[in-house]
Computed example of a mutant assay.
Amino acid sequence: MHAVQSVDDPDAFAEYLGALGRDHRKFHVLPEQYEVVGRCLIEALREYCGDQWAPEHEQAWRDAYTAISSIMVAGAEADRDNPPYWHAEVVSHERRSSDIAVLTVRPLRPLRYRAGQYVSVECRHQPRLWRMFSIANAPRDDGLLEFHVRAVGAGWVSSALVWKLRAGDMLRIGAPMGTMSLDRTSTRDVVCVAGGTGLAPLRALVEELATYNRTRWVHLFFGVRTRDDLYDLGALQRLAARYPWLSVVPAVSDDPGYDGEQGTAFEVMARYGPWQEHDFFVSGSPSMVKATLRGIADLNVPSFRVRYDSFGDVD
């Protein structure tokens, strides 16, 4: 989804590809291997397209792959001062519900990132399986990183992180990726729409705003299915009590007895407003993000004011 989001913006797409190249360093990919993969890709396309394959198709694919791989290789080369991945120790593991855990980890080397970004994570329980998780805090002086993880379906990595991981265990963390970051030059108020553990990067953005914001109102809508899924509501309410520019509205969609806002995060958000002049940040499962983006478009919010992430509940 991140590539699709930026494909119409050449600069953003190049930034994404450079970050992807940096991330591929964790697999110890060499520059010459990109050429091998490119040849295999063209051969596969030629084989499966059959008579529909034409010389102009082959040239277009070669040109596209060469451009993409060149940016990825350049991104990897520019990152040589950093390790291909970071070893990190789990310093705390807190189960917030039957299937949600909050992890705090300490990288053994400094990891520089921006609030709102995500990283790939590998654990010893599922070696060589990397999954993306958003960092739930803005950069801190102590270097600690927080992750919010829900064990989903057949998700091998997320299940291991929730049910098997313990304090003292080691993780491997890939290079930071993602462009869902704050525009510090914007003076517009902010709306954050979170679904489940998609709250993580939005909380990081709120923490960053807390370091400098004095004039922008921030409205955070935290949507879950049942009240038991409001795993971080206490922390959000403490932030709102400390910063008068922040309002937090929990929304519960499948718990009729809940004494509060009923509906999805978007449905509840739409009851407030108007929102046409706000900057939007959306994070959650792919289906939640897709539905929310459609709804925001129906509210006549320009697409360039909407940034989103879809790793919140994805293994």
Rank of each mutant, 00 (worst) to 15 (best):
V206A: 07
T179Q: 10
F222G: 02
G196D: 01
S181H: 05
R166D: 11
T197G: 05
R150M: 13
A151E: 05
A194T: 04
W217M: 04
S159C: 08
S158A: 06
L230V: 11
G196H: 01
A175F: 04
G168C: 04
V191D: 07
E207W: 01
G153P: 03
G155Q: 09
V191K: 07
H219D: 13
V191L: 05
L165I: 12
V157W: 01
A210E: 09
R203I: 05
G178T: 00
L230K: 10
G223K: 06
P176W: 00
R188T: 03
G174K: 02
L230F: 15
A210D: 10
E207G: 02
D183G: 09
R214A: 14
A200G: 08
N213T: 01
R188P: 06
V191I: 13
L161P: 06
A200H: 03
A151C: 04
S159I: 02
T215E: 14
W217I: 00
R214V: 09
W156T: 13
E207P: 00
G223H: 09
G223V: 05
D229A: 13
T211L: 07
R150A: 12
V218L: 14
R227W: 04
R184M: 08
W156Y: 08
H219V: 00
D228Q: 12
A175P: 04
L220D: 15
R188Q: 11
W163L: 12
L205C: 01
G174H: 02
V224F: 11
N213V: 05
R216G: 00
L182T: 04
A200C: 06
L220Q: 10
R216H: 05
W163Y: 15
L230R: 09
L199H: 06
S159Q: 13
L230C: 11
L202P: 08
D169M: 13
G196M: 02
L171P: 00
D229E: 14
T187G: 14
A160W: 04
R172F: 04
G155S: 10
T187K: 15
R172N: 11
D229G: 11
G198F: 01
A204W: 06
T215D: 14
L209K: 07
K164S: 14
P176N: 12
V206E: 02
R172E: 12
W217E: 13
T197K: 05
T179K: 07
G198I: 04
E208Y: 08
C192D: 06
D228G: 05
L209Y: 15
L199A: 11
T187H: 13
L202F: 08
L220A: 11
V218A: 09
L209C: 15
P201S: 07
M180E: 00
D229M: 10
L209F: 14
F221V: 13
R214I: 02
P176Q: 06
R166K: 15
F221I: 06
R150D: 09
A160C: 07
V162Y: 14
L202R: 07
L161E: 02
N213F: 01
W156A: 13
W156P: 00
S181K: 00
L205D: 00
G178A: 02
T215C: 06
